[in-house]
Design a protein around this nucleic acid. Structure first.
Lengths: 362, 362
DNA sequence: CTCGTCGGCAGGTACGTTTCTGCATGGTCG
DNA sequence: CGACCATGCAGAAACGTACCTGCCGACGAG
């Protein structure tokens, strides 16, 4: 005998619940759940029957109820740094897009979906979504969001090694020092006498480590550092900084730019000053963009391999969520790749070695 | 007197629940709920007291339970088209990034978060997340995902007008015909005699409408259409198609490229054939990338205003979710913007007008 | 003095699952 | 032939919240 509320529920024109399936299939709720989830001890006939009835009714289990019951939502947070109201950073644009793409792909392959969340602690949004874990991009030290997440016992994996004593579950990063040193050596090999740096004013680890490596290299080879720093999130400031760098009295004859748009900015600035690339100015910048393959001239770029990073970050996070004892270390260093193009290519040896360029002569 | 299960629950080392707050504050669960949600009839003293206790215990309401109870999750799906395993499209890269950025921002401002989901119907993922609604980018006609969502009664807003009789709640799009006609007129004004098109082989609305508009324009002005189509998701195929277009016996003296990378590809191809831009070849492409401001020469681009589209799509969707009777139409057309740069600029008038270029002579 | 009303709160139910426990039934084995 | 076990399934207790309903006291009006 059906009770009143059962009857009322069946008459709901909305979506079919597990109860409706059970009633239609003439079995209990338990049997339906077991049949659909492949659990319990059921003969194949019952399983098939239940599945068929569920299909016929268009039954979709309620994600909210499942999450409430199991404690797992299948959702992974992806924090995006914000400047003002705008999410994402301008400077890491191609990087972020590629990284997010790989992360999305890796997450989906393991049955998880990514939720885009602001790095700023907007409580109302963060607490409104049930997360199984979070991917954090370039966390600042003492990041309040990360602390809160860790306090809740959620696994947190960061892209970029944590700055301070941030207790993340795992992290993935490049070896930025090695990368910068490699580029500087590469430029020196190509004939650079004075290498400049286009860097940022922000305090994130990437900027900091790269700049420090540059300064150390300068000290080692006995070159005066010559660099310009600008707020990397401002797309216009990059062009201005590139111009400033080439306008200096101690103008460098090679430049490494830490951020994606620096290549085109430096090319434009070089044109303004009548400098030929690579003859008068060697150029390398850190970018994931393919446009540098077709610029005039093509620009040598350093790739941080965001695809591999995005994949690794998600794998580590899901491993932690599911309690898989990964034999991978919880700190993964992804190698970078220097894509050498014309802008930094060693000039063909001439009959006479050209005299060291005087910056004032440029 | 505390019952056994209450005691057991209180001993849970995990997160504090609403019960714990109620017990600690010496009030009932109802009072806690009302106090925190600003409902019910409570004196301010009680409200403050409850809030303070909740803060002290670090109470965070369970998103899953709230969702289950209220039926609202605060989550919006964002479908990304996939080619093979990879989410996002290559061709719409900057467009998608900008659009997603604006959408994320708009959603967060209204207390919603975006969930990235694949356009392919991966049932296991889709049904594992409780969505309040979905943003669909460029749905194909009879899109199974959209149909399923609509069947569930969820609002769906699409970026790009739906191709077939797809029953979306609302859509936002540009007027692609008008945009293409405007560009062709612009090129003709700049002196183009034979305008070529670089288009795609896929069947999405954008490609279709743009190509059709081109063909109609050709018919109107009596020009033989000259175009190359390539699979837009393949980044290499674009360079090849650009090359083919300029290698044709009936080589165009102006080209419009429908996709983002076409500008650099066409510039590179023009260099290979010794064509000067804009003197021998006028160039426009549809792109959101800022690199075209600094190429040699700078390239005229058509912007589809993805920021405005992303914002509009999300506003419409949330309005539908919350049942707001928007006075905006459910079909919004966002104007495009032609950013004119050197690559399509009318050559300065010479003493004698140059003779109409014979394509074979190029 | 009584009755209605309103403020201030507590009890309890429902949201839709998963899963623990337990009850039959039928077969096997000592 | 009885004990036992595996099989096939049902009942019911959670998960944590929101909100409907209702109780109690106080106060003003009649």
């Amino acid at each position: 005998m059906s009770r009143a509320d059962t009857a009322r529920r069946s008459s709901r024109p909305g979506r079919a619940g597990i109860r409706d399936v059970a009633a239609a299939a003439g079995v209990s709720i338990t049997t339906v759940s077991d049949a659909l989830n492949g659990k319990g001890r059921l003969p194949d006939a019952t399983r098939r029957h239940v599945r068929e009835v569920a299909d016929r009714l268009g039954y979709r289990p309620s994600a909210a109820a499942r999450t409430l019951r199991t404690g797992k939502s299948g959702l992974i947070g992806l924090t995006v740094t914000t400047y003002g109201d705008e999410p994402f950073t301008f400077t890491e644009f191609a990087y972020f897009a590629e990284m997010a793409r790989a992360a999305t792909s890796a997450a989906l392959a393991r049955g998880y979906a990514l939720v885009i969340l602001p790095a700023t602690s907007r409580h109302d949004v963060w607490s409104n979504v049930a997360l199984d874990g979070t991917v954090v991009i370039d966390p600042s030290d003492q990041d309040p969001v990360v602390s809160e997440l860790v306090r809740q016992g959620l696994p947190v994996v960061s892209d970029g090694r944590p700055a301070g004593p941030l207790p993340v579950t795992a992290w993935v990063d490049n070896d930025h020092e090695e990368a910068v040193l490699g580029i500087l050596d590469h430029l020196a090999d190509a004939g650079a006498r004075r290498i400049g740096l286009l860097t940022g004013t922000s305090t994130d680890t990437y900027t900091h480590l790269s700049t420090t490596a540059y300064l150390r290299w300068c000290e080692r080879v006995g070159q005066d550092p010559v660099y310009e720093a600008y707020p990397a999130h401002d797309p216009c400031a990059g062009a201005v900084a590139a111009d400033r760098l080439l306008a200096r009295p101690d103008r460098p004859d090679a430049v490494y730019g830490l951020f994606d748009p620096n290549g085109t900015d430096l090319l434009a600035a070089a044109r303004r000053y009548g400098l030929r690339v690579p003859d008068d100015l060697l150029l390398v910048c850190c970018s994931e963009s393919t446009v540098y393959a077709n610029t005039e001239p093509p620009v040598t770029t350093l790739s941080l391999k965001p695809r591999r990073i995005g994949t690794a970050v998600v794998q580590l996070l899901i491993d932690a969520i599911e309690g898989v004892e990964s034999d991978q270390p919880v700190e993964q260093v992804i190698p970078t790749e220097l894509i050498v193009r014309t802008s930094s290519e060693r000039r063909p040896p001439r009959t006479t070695v050209s005299a060291p360029r005087s910056p004032e002569a440029g």
